[in-house]
């Protein structure tokens, strides 16, 4: 059983070794920074593509604009009628005021709304969602044929984008599958690179390991400082990679949003906490696994 004084020795040895083998430590940390920056950039791109695809897929809906302003009761009656159509999942009434609020939220700070608010040009509408995107076409045909209830204004031609929606759904699935496959492949190659770097640091200290073995240190006792070193390299490397990526992402998102305000991208705040810790954990895990594989192999070959 390892006691507190052992851990004290491990910690001291780890920090002394990192300091004394500065170049090797630098090589290991740089490897982690570069590898995880590549993996992290890729993951950020995948997460955003997935978010875009999901956002677009959510828009697989039919919007029916009322030709004239409608009362709440009238809107409820129209909603009930639409719900009776086969394949319709849900219908939501969106008033002109609500539509304007949504637009304001989306374009916050980009357009001055004071004039538009005075005479809201947006129509009342019903948003119709279907159970299956494939049924959109049928539902629209029935909606076109539908007569509005008595006393309720009629509808403009239903707005929808079926083919567009299908493509988005396929794209979303492909992004997820390709993302997982590539992330796994990248992770494996990172593990191999980190493993090789740590092997070099172990080889540089083979005399130390031999002496430890000859004085009667257990294999576990020999391993711990190397594992801690691997974890430390992994953590420092991944923390640096996270910071680099977050700065880069903040810069990119800010410029991207200015150029394409209608394309939804995940804001930095939305990923910061999660992304930082996930990447640090990955670095830590890579460092640990890389050193464990290397030191086990080295000790087995002695």
């Amino acid at each position: 059983m390892l006691s507190l004084r052992n851990w004290e020795f491990f910690l001291r040895e780890t920090f002394i070794n990192v300091r004394r083998n500065g170049l090797m430590s630098l090589a290991a940390v740089s490897t982690v920074v570069v590898s995880l920056s590549i993996l992290g950039s890729f993951l950020l791109a995948v997460v955003n593509l997935d978010a875009m695809a999901s956002d677009m897929a959510r828009k697989v809906e039919i919007t029916m604009f009322f030709l004239e302003p409608v009362s709440k009761i009238g809107a409820q009656r129209a909603r009930k009628r639409v719900l009776e159509i086969r394949g319709v999942k849900e219908v939501q009434f969106v008033s002109r005021r609500e539509a304007l609020n949504r637009l304001k939220e989306r374009l916050e700070g980009q357009i001055d709304f004071s004039d538009i608010e005075k005479s809201n040009p947006l129509p009342d509408s019903l948003e119709v969602r279907v159970f299956d995107p494939d049924q959109v076409g049928n539902v629209v045909t029935q909606l076109k044929r539908m007569q509005p209830p008595a006393g309720v204004p009629g509808f403009d031609t239903p707005q929808y984008g079926e083919k567009y929606a299908q493509r988005i759904l396929h794209f979303s699935r492909a992004v997820k599958a390709l993302g997982m496959f590539t992330a796994a492949l990248l992770s494996l190659s990172i593990l191999v690179i980190i493993n090789n770097t740590i092997r070099l640091t172990i080889f540089a200290r083979r005399r130390e390991i031999r002496i430890m073995q000859l004085v009667g240190a257990t294999n576990w006792f020999i391993r711990v400082p190397f594992l801690m070193e691997g974890i430390l390299h992994g953590f420092i490397g991944s923390a640096l990679a996270s910071l680099l990526l977050l700065c880069g992402y903040y810069y990119t998102v800010t410029h991207f949003r200015m150029a394409f305000p209608f394309v939804p991208v995940i804001p930095v705040e939305g990923i910061m906490g999660h992304f930082f810790w996930v990447l640090c954990f990955m670095g830590l895990l890579f460092g640990y696994a890389g050193s464990l594989i290397s030191i086990r192999k080295f000790l087995a070959n002695l």
């Binding site: 390892l2 052992n6 020795f9 002496i211 430890m212 009667g216 240190a217 006792f221």
Partner: peptide, 11 residues
Amino acid sequence: AFALQAIGADR
């Protein structure tokens, strides 16, 4: 000291 530290000897 390393020979003793490596076998977990106390300070």
